[in-house]
Write a protein that binds this DNA or RNA. Structure first.
Length: 163
DNA sequence: GCCAACGTTGGC
DNA sequence: GCCAACGTTGGC
C-alpha cells in the first residue's frame, strides 16, 4: 500500500502548472534543506507514493494537484553546485547530506482545496499542515486525509443548500 | 551540552 | 510587511 505525502512549494518559484508543462510532467524535488524532511526524502518516500501538491505563501494557499513519486531518494545535485542557491559547501559527493525524489504530475484537482477549507474539515483535524508552527515542506499525510482532500476537490465548492 | 542570537517560514 | 514559531549556529 503506497503512502501519501504533502509537498509544499511557492507557486512563484515552482507551481503545479510548471510541473504539468515539464518534460514528462516530471521534476526532481531539489532544494529541501531540513533534516527531518531530508530523512523522509531519503528513507521513507517510495515509488508509487502519492503527493499532494500544495501552494504556500500565495494569495490562496491550497492543494492544487496530485503527483506520484517516480524515483526514490537520491543525492540532490544542487548541493554540489557553487552557483546554486542550495549549494552546501560542507556536503561531499562521497557523503551527500541532502536528498531528493522525482515526482510526476498525476492530475490537476477539479478545483483547489484551500487551506481555509482544510481547517474546516473534521476529517482533517489532525493534519500536520494545520498544526501550529508546522513548517516542514515535506510531510506525511494519512490515507484518510488523502481521501478527504480528493473528495473535497470533487465536491461542489459552495455550501448553498439544495432544495 | 546549554542557550541566546539569528535566520527562515508562511499565514495573515 | 508583520510576527509567531521553529531550526540552526556558535560561544562558553
Amino acid at each position: 500500500m503506497p503512502n501519501h505525502w504533502l509537498f509544499k512549494t511557492e507557486p512563484t518559484t515552482f507551481s503545479f502548472s510548471d510541473l504539468l508543462s515539464a518534460k514528462d510532467r516530471t521534476t526532481f524535488w531539489h532544494g529541501v534543506r531540513n533534516y527531518q524532511a531530508r530523512n523522509m526524502l531519503r528513507d521513507d518516500i517510495k515509488n508509487g507514493d502519492g503527493v499532494l501538491f500544495y501552494h504556500s505563501s500565495c494569495t490562496v494557499p491550497a492543494v492544487v494537484g496530485i503527483a506520484e513519486v517516480v524515483r526514490e531518494g537520491y543525492p540532490d545535485h544542487s548541493q554540489f553546485d557553487p552557483s546554486s542557491e542550495y549549494y552546501d559547501p560542507d556536503s561531499t559527493e562521497a557523503e551527500p547530506r541532502w536528498f531528493m525524489v522525482d515526482i510526476r504530475a498525476t492530475r490537476e484537482l477539479e478545483r483547489a482545496v484551500t487551506l481555509e477549507e482544510m481547517r474546516e474539515a473534521p476529517a482533517l483535524k489532525e493534519m500536520k499542515l494545520l498544526k501550529r508552527g508546522m513548517r516542514l515542506s515535506v510531510q506525511p499525510v494519512t490515507a484518510k486525509e488523502w481521501q478527504a482532500i480528493l473528495a473535497t476537490a470533487a465536491a461542489k465548492p459552495t455550501k448553498a443548500k439544495r432544495k
